[in-house]
Design a protein around this nucleic acid. Structure first.
Lengths: 282, 282
DNA sequence: TGATCTTACGTTTAGCGTAACAATA
DNA sequence: TATTGTTACGCTAAACGTAAGATCA
């Protein structure tokens, strides 16, 4: 039966032009390739080379064989990949969320409910998250709205409320609540990786500019050292300490006070039971 | 690297359900298959089976792997076939003829001019012969007309003249020549494998019936024992002895007196030089 | 002379079958 | 008890690398 190793040697020979260079490239001795090529000719029952006393080259049939060998090797590679991918998919629960905060609750819950599964999460905008669940490319979606379709299950499990954070002396500091139209025009410090929040800020405050910080350390330093307003929410406990000197002013617009829904395919009901045990602020 | 033998064992296991039966089917020992399956799991880096103490079966990933393995094995088989076919095509001169007689001259000429080539011939009707050369599925065609196209070369090399053969007492015996319209309505003995002659007889003698004999021996017996008319030509020397007691009457219609042309692609000019040395009756 | 391919030779390895074992029905 | 799968053991055959030989630029 055909030997993929020998076919790889054949292809390498075709790429390099000589057996010696091919051998070097493959970290095998040169006589080994000589033998492999002879063996391939035996397998095919066909002559693949024109041989001189100290040179060898592909004949037309050999060229054809190389072409076919490339194809077969690719097929073999894809085979392994597709089996591994399938295996991985069976051991992975993938979650796409439109916001970071829900993941802080959902991922640990999934990990402990499915200890031998890999939990893979990604943060996207609202519409991409919706696409992911509808196309089946993720098992679980976290959205700010329900999917009203019997093929999907929706669970409301978390509420998040946006506030703006300003230093004591700031113009906004005396307000007890604000709306986006009042905030529009101010410039803000913003973290990256915010999911739908990012887009929502830009839509509701089109005149504002956002200084997006990718690096957490720099973000914190800027909060301490500048008087630029930033945002926080009831769920962002990690920043409580950083923001303790600032004043929190709730944003009252409904878009700034969202309910998160876990959405999954109705075949995957088991997931809903895990998420049902979270339920915060409801 | 992946081993096609092991993949075949995997597929056989999938087909048979147990390792032992698969081993028997493949004429190898059963421990060998056990090892191969373990080795495959190593190669893939993935579990393919669910194992009980004395039973083993495919898990979902294994089923996927089997599916992929079948595909890869087919690809490998096709690869070998296509390389061999290509080699064969380089060592074969194929001839399609619209009549048997020209082949009696052309095939020996080609064999001696190209002693290490395989000469493959087939006998077809006029239009199929034409298609074969135009589609490139044959190197050489033998036709009763030229192809007037610069991409093809035509050589007239042989003429064949049809006669009807009747026993001495037959109604037609006294004629010195006949036409198809005079023959139409008589029934004839006919050999099979006549190329265009067969169709031509049926078209020109629509009221006649033809008793087609596939077997040479039976054909000869029927000529001797019956008074049914049959056909011969100036080239059919092999039947001279069988027909020596019959009377030959030439058929005068132009369709019954043909010139054969060898037609090949103009790239294959070398062939014309071989055929140029035949030229009979010209 | 250096590069290239093939052949020869000896060693290593890896693949196989037999046998023994454990578990099941 | 007969069947099935795994493990252990020993042998064989195949695969490999080193070395030597031949040829060419």
């Amino acid at each position: 039966m055909l030997n993929l190793n020998e076919l790889e040697q054949l292809v390498t020979f075709a790429d390099t032009g000589t057996l010696s260079v091919a051998a070097e490239k493959l970290h095998i001795s040169q006589p080994t390739i000589t033998r492999s090529m002879q063996h391939l000719e035996d397998e095919f029952g066909v002559s693949l080379f024109t041989r001189g006393k100290n040179k060898i080259s592909l004949n037309p049939v050999g060229i054809k064989a190389v072409e076919e060998a490339r194809h077969l090797l690719l097929t073999a590679e894809n085979m392994i990949k597709s089996v591994r991918d399938y295996d991985k998919s069976l051991h992975t629960i993938s979650v796409t969320s439109c916001a970071p905060a829900p993941l802080w609750y959902v991922l640990p819950a999934l990990s402990s409910a499915y200890p031998d599964m890999t939990i893979s999460s990604s943060l996207k905008g609202s519409s991409e998250t919706m696409e992911d669940i509808l196309s089946g490319s993720t098992h679980l979606a976290i959205l700010t709205e329900e999917i009203k379709d019997n093929n999907y299950l929706n669970i409301a499990f978390l509420k998040e409320n946006l506030s703006v954070c300003v230093p004591a002396g700031h113009d906004l500091a005396k307000k007890s609540s604000v709306t986006f139209s009042e905030l529009n025009g101010f410039n803000f410090l913003l973290r990256s990786e915010l999911g739908f929040w990012d887009e929502m800020c830009r839509i509701n405050m089109p005149s504002s500019r956002f200084l997006v910080q990718t690096n957490e350390f720099e973000f914190i330093e800027l909060i301490k050292e500048s008087s630029l307003p930033c945002f926080t929410t009831n769920l962002a406990k990690a920043y409580d300490n950083v923001l303790k000197d600032r004043i929190n002013i709730p944003v009252t617009n409904p878009e700034a006070n969202v309910t998160y829904f876990l959405v999954c395919h109705s075949d995957d009901k088991a997931y809903t039971e895990v998420i049902n045990q979270i339920k915060i602020n409801l």
